[in-house]
Design a binder for these strands. Sequence first.
RNA 1: GGGGAGGUCGCAUAGUGGCCUAGUGCGCGGCACUGGAAAUGCCGUAGGGGGGCAACCUCCUCGUGGGUUCAAAUCCCACCCUCCCCGCCA
Length: 422
Amino acid sequence: MLDIRLLREQTDDVKAQLGRAGVEPAAVDAVLAYDEQRRTLLKEVEALKATRNAVSKEIGKMKDAAARDTKIAEMRGVGDRIAELDRQVAQVEEQQRMAILELRNLPHPSVPDGPDEDHNVVIAQEGQPRAFDFTPKPHWELGEQLGIIDFERGVKISGSRFYVLKGLGAKLQRAVIQWLLDLHGRQGYTEVYTPFVVKEETVWASGQLPKFRDNLYRDVEDDLWLVPTAEVPVTSLHRDEIIDAAQLPLHYCAYTPCFRREKMSAGRDVRGIKRGHQFDKVEMYKFVHPDTSYAELEKLRADAEECCRLLGIPFRTKALCTGDLGFAATKTYDVEMWAPGQSEWLEVSSCSNVEAFQARRANARFRPEPGARPEFVHTLNGSGLGMPRTIIAIMENYQQANGSIAVPEVLRPYMGGIDVIG
RNA sequence: GGGGAGGUCGCAUAGUGGCCUAGUGCGCGGCACUGGAAAUGCCGUAGGGGGGCAACCUCCUCGUGGGUUCAAAUCCCACCCUCCCCGCCA
């Protein structure tokens, strides 16, 4: 959520910045119109309430019954008017809230312009794609041949876009998760284990609602939502809290499964395990002082890149352009691993600064100085890493001529010493 | 799931329709006293919204949301959460 004061005071600037991401200026004007209405109504109703409060106090002290009854009758009318105005205020406030919640975050000035993902800018690339003396296979072939991915039974159990990992495939994923969590611990992140189903307000706080309603699974009975990313529960860790400034920055990492209906991506990436309704992810998340959030973004990106580097897989990093930037983000780096089997760069991490966008929704604040007014923190999130794609990259990069898969060095301790699958 | 108790300022508690502009103690901050400290005394200690150049004025919040009333922490309704007992059960 954007700051209503910013919209009021720097209207043209906000419109210009939103315009870079394709948002019509009218969307801003709509919010401001509601805001204007709201403040007009507030002035009137509050004056009436002040009167009523004062007169009610007098009534309590009055001895003269007749004068008293006159005042009571008078206040009855005022009360009716207040009730009517309160209704209007509530309605306008709700309309304003909905309108402002639909507004995306402002792109940072350093974000390149561009209409879509083809205009993202590669800013770093590391590791040489391996030279194969045989034709590398895509992971779905390797997985079936080795008996570590079972697509058919996944579909039997839960339908399309579900799969089963089996034997060393399941163990490999568990090893990667474990290794990543340990690595992030060394990088200074505190591991948290959160609920995987959350209340509706938790999904609002991180910005997935109202925009992505169709992409979420939900239990109607208890109104609990399955998390689409750890970002959702972790954002709400400090919801409605005022954090001691000395505690910042707070760095968390969390493993969760992620559940996505993928209604918007129907038909894309149907082959293999790249895009499923359920996948595992280790997420990094930061609550930081606003002055430091862009420096923290660079560190976040470096931490994600380190994961790829240590796994020994070629990767590149892109700065997303305005047209590809997510709803909540001011600036985003995507980290992609090379998958030689399907000849594709796979997004394994997306590192974003969202500034106060989520913090404002979540009401997560800090006190800059003792006694000072609380301010919103800045939050950042980045995968470290997304599971199925990391697994794909490992399988395809480490495959051998005989169809077996070597286990990356760093994972071997987590695989009980197993150094090859197959 | 059934029964009971309870949710008030950072913590603990008082408050059963107008004297609540929510009191008191503790904690915290400042000042005074002191060679310095302890003790003591004084002052201050929530968040948000609106108005105003400002000083300041004002509205809302006593778990949440409704309702009754001129007036609600206080009365009524619904819901949420915590604790205890019983039942069931990974």
